[in-house]
Structures are given as C-alpha cells and as structure tokens.
C-alpha cells in the first residue's frame, strides 16, 4: 500500500535530515500526525521563524538575529584578537570554556580539493580583510586536527604573513578529531597551550 501523497511527502522531507534513515523518518512522521496539533505545528513554525530571522553576522558570520551577533555587539570583548573556527557551533564550544574574550570568525569550511573547496569557497578573503581593517594582530586558529584542518591552518598562516601572530589550538585535541566532540576542560587547556603554526611541522 502507498501512503497518501501528503504523508509520503512528510516522510521524504524528514528523511533528508542528517542521521535520519527511512525507519526513523516514518516514526517521526507518524508521531507528527498523532500528537496534538499545536505541538506538531510548533515545529513547522520554529523552522519558518528560524529561517526568516537567523542570518550570518555581518562581521564574523556567527548565527545571529541582528546584523551583528551577540559577541560582536558586546563592547566588553577584546579587540585586536580573533579566533577562527569552521562552524558556528564551534563558537558555542569555545564560549563554554569562559577563557576566551576576543572575537570570532566563522570560515564555513576547510580546504578540500576533493570536494572542490578552495580558498574562494570558504571565508578566507573576508578574514584577511577584517584583519587589515580592524587592526587585528593576533589570530588563533581553532580548526580540526584532520588533514583538511592542518592544510587550512598552514594556508591561513602563510596568507596572514609574519606581521600577525598566528597560533593554533593543538595540544590536547585528539588527532583527527573535531572541535565539536571535545569537552570544555580539554578545550580550555588547548586555549592556554596553543602553539605558533610554524612550529607544527618539522620543516
């Protein structure tokens, strides 16, 4: 038996979500049909308003409901230092350590020629521009320790040049690991023990 068209469409659109397979999609769809209507519609409303209101911060590309995100708008934050991350959720992880008081920059991806991602596909130009305009003299790279993360660090430090102090979080991060999966204590330790990018490789 085929599902009615509208149900079929619901199952298929749920299945597009990451980590959701056909079985889970089916379960979720039935739950959405069987639960009280306001509860189910709350989800569709939440999706709509998040899509409408949330956009990248004009300065650091963190998610925000204003032109500038909370961090960029905070006058207490230190200027002249920026921490580079891949995704907005990495900012959340770093903020939990409460050890860092500077600004952020969200790259949006790592160099990966295999996936057709080069310097123009991530926000490297935007970072270089900010460093010039905001007189930033310290850049902290908080990128994954995967080879993509390593290559991006090396590329950035070369582009930023010797006049900027470029350090990276490395100590304590599991090799090949994502920032995302690292606990606050480890991240805090990594923040304090960061190293200059040039010291990372033997040559």
């Amino acid at each position: 038996m085929d599902y009615p068209e509208a149900l079929e469409e619901l199952v298929e659109s749920l299945q597009q979500l990451p980590t959701i397979g056909p079985k889970s999609a089916q379960r979720l769809a039935f739950w959405l049909l069987e639960t009280a209507e306001p509860k189910a519609l709350r989800l569709s409303e939440a999706i709509r308003s998040a899509r409408n209101q949330i956009r990248p911060c004009r300065r650091c590309f963190n998610y925000s409901d204003r032109e500038l995100c909370q961090i960029c708008a905070d006058p207490q934050r230190k200027t002249g230092v920026v921490c580079v991350v891949v995704q907005p959720k990495d900012i959340v992880a770093l903020e939990k350590t409460r050890e860092y008081r500077g600004g952020y920059h969200v790259l949006g991806g790592l160099l990966s020629p295999l996936d057709g991602i080069g310097p123009d596909q991530v926000r490297i130009h935007e970072l270089l521009e900010r460093v010039r305009e905001e007189a930033i003299d310290e850049v902290i790279l908080a990128l994954d320790t995967t080879v993509g993360g390593e290559a991006t660090c090396l590329y950035l430090s070369r582009q930023l040049g010797p006049e900027t102090s470029v350090t990276r979080l490395a100590q304590g991060l599991p090799a090949g690991g994502n920032l995302d999966y690292t606990d606050e204590v480890t991240l805090g330790r990594a923040l304090r023990g960061r190293r200059r990018v040039e010291d990372l490789s033997p040559q």
Binding site: L111, G116, G118, A151, Q159, P202, Q203
Partner: peptide
C-alpha cells in the same frame, strides 16, 4: 587535476613532507 588554486599547493606539500 582541478588546476584551481596554485597558492594552496604549498600547504598540502608541507603536510606531505611532515
């Protein structure tokens, strides 16, 4: 193969050496 950004090559080479 893509011949896209030659400036990137050195970074990958540095890792290749490492």
């Amino acid at each position: 193969r893509a011949q896209s950004s030659r400036a990137e090559l050195e970074s990958w080479d540095q890792l290749l050496v490492q």
